[in-house]
Amino acid sequence: MQTSIVIAGFGGQGVLFAGQLLAHAALDARKHVTWIPSYGPEMRGGTAHCTVIISDRPVGSPLARHPEIVLAMNQPSAVKYAPLIGLGGLLVVNTSLAEIPATRPDVRLIPVAANEVAEAAGDLRLANVVLLGALLATRPILPAPVVEKALERYLPERHRHLLDANRAAFRAGYASQDEQTRLAA
């Protein structure tokens, strides 16, 4: 089993951190994992993305031309990545900042008003964690408790005071899909 995830958005939306969180959680779940960011000066104020590969075997390519899962945090990312998603893939899109893009019928679409959910949970800046919650509720690539635990362990020191808000945002994101998933089942 190998899963490739691309998380994309504006610089400052916590795209890279969301990916690192998944990577840490994957390691804690004893998986093979790689994380790689877009890097360089063009990042500032521009768009940022990272790729996370979670696998049962050693990871070869740390990049994926057709990722199975895309978390699009803004409009340009949704437009760019929707067509690139692999067969039977999943697109989690932040509808607070992006219109729902046209997707192929095989792609599962999860719209989340992540900014609003994050704000309700305590902090607008936690839309990234909301999307992660929504993702794990829809496709449990890792157990949600492991990701929550990773949040506790790896939230950078300077954001420690936001731990509770992060947890709340993660759970709110999870709950936003939970109901629908259960309904669909």
Partner: peptide, 10 residues
């Protein structure tokens, strides 16, 4: 190369 420098791995 830049990939190895920038990527994270266990």
């Amino acid at each position: 190369d830049g990939i190895l420098g920038q990527m994270m791995e266990p």
